[in-house]
Design a protein around this nucleic acid. Structure first.
Length: 263
DNA sequence: GCGACAG
DNA sequence: ATCTTGTCGC
């Protein structure tokens, strides 16, 4: 695996203005519509493709955790990748790299992109699709971490965020039933014409009857995956938890790897 | 100046 | 992201 666009790799040493300029370039290169060869419906029926003798597509979830030094300061980022095929985990890998910059809303990929790309280099299989923790097109400059990573590797990617960064839900997103979705449109804070559909609030899970509610996920196109397909896939990859399995397992693995690496 | 702000 | 037990509700 390599970087088709090494010139777009997130460089933490860039000035804030340069980072934003790079993001606009990434957004112009990104493809926010379906452009892949695998069958996206294979995720809802992991066994079906096996029955037809077809190789199920490989999906990888990516998530990060952070390590602290002796003084208690976060000085390293750990990126974990969990690759799955036909509903089974086929590979797990992680990488640790020093942290260069603090978290700044809108510039997440410049903080976590390094460890992610390092981990992807260490992966032996090459996934047909990536799911990242964070946004894709739901971003001020339409270039969230899922879009940035997807474009640098030129691989289909989807952003899965747990809270809304920007954009406007087209309907009330409280108390949504499981399986439902609400379009997220660009607002004045997004570098896209107002009303542009930049993603979906996806309710993958919901409590049965209580007076408590689970918040939806915010799913958006990273690269080469349209918003509808992104929402479909995020939903299809979900089983018993709110997060799609690849991301949930990467989240869990990132935590385990952090604990075992500090011992 | 005010408000908003993924992980 | 991270610090963290108990606790509310099915």
């Amino acid at each position: 695996m390599s970087h088709p666009r090494p010139d777009l790799v997130p460089d933490p040493d860039l000035s804030r203005a340069e980072m934003e300029t790079l993001q606009r370039e990434i957004a112009s290169v990104a493809v926010f519509e379906d452009d892949f060869a695998f069958d996206p419906d294979a995720f809802s029926n992991p066994l079906e493709s096996a029955a037809t003798g077809t190789e199920p597509p490989v999906v990888a979830g990516v998530d990060q955790s952070f390590l602290t030094n002796e003084d208690g300061d976060q000085d390293r980022a750990l990126s974990a990748v969990v690759a799955m095929q036909g509903g089974e985990v086929i590979e797990r890998i992680h990488a640790v790299t020093p942290l260069e910059i603090p978290y700044i809303p809108g510039l997440l990929s410049f903080r976590e992109g390094g460890p992610i790309l390092a981990a992807l280099e260490a992966l032996s299989v090459d996934p047909d699709l990536f799911l990242f923790d964070g946004n894709g097109r739901i971003h001020f400059r339409e270039a969230g971490i899922a879009t940035h990573m997807g474009v640098v590797r030129d691989v289909p990617s989807i952003g899965v965020a747990k809270s809304l960064l920007c954009g406007t839900p087209q309907e009330d997103i409280d108390e949504l039933p499981a399986g439902s979705r609400v379009p997220i449109e660009a607002n004045s804070r997004v570098d896209a014409p107002d009303g542009t559909r930049i993603g979906y609030a996806v309710q993958t899970r919901q409590y049965d009857s209580p007076n408590r509610y689970i918040n939806p996920l915010y799913v958006s196109s990273g690269h080469r995956v349209g918003p509808e397909t992104a929402a479909d896939v995020a939903h299809d990859l979900t089983s018993s938890y709110k997060l799609p399995e690849p991301v949930r397992l990467a989240d869990q693995y990132a935590d385990e790897a952090k604990k075992s690496s500090s011992r």
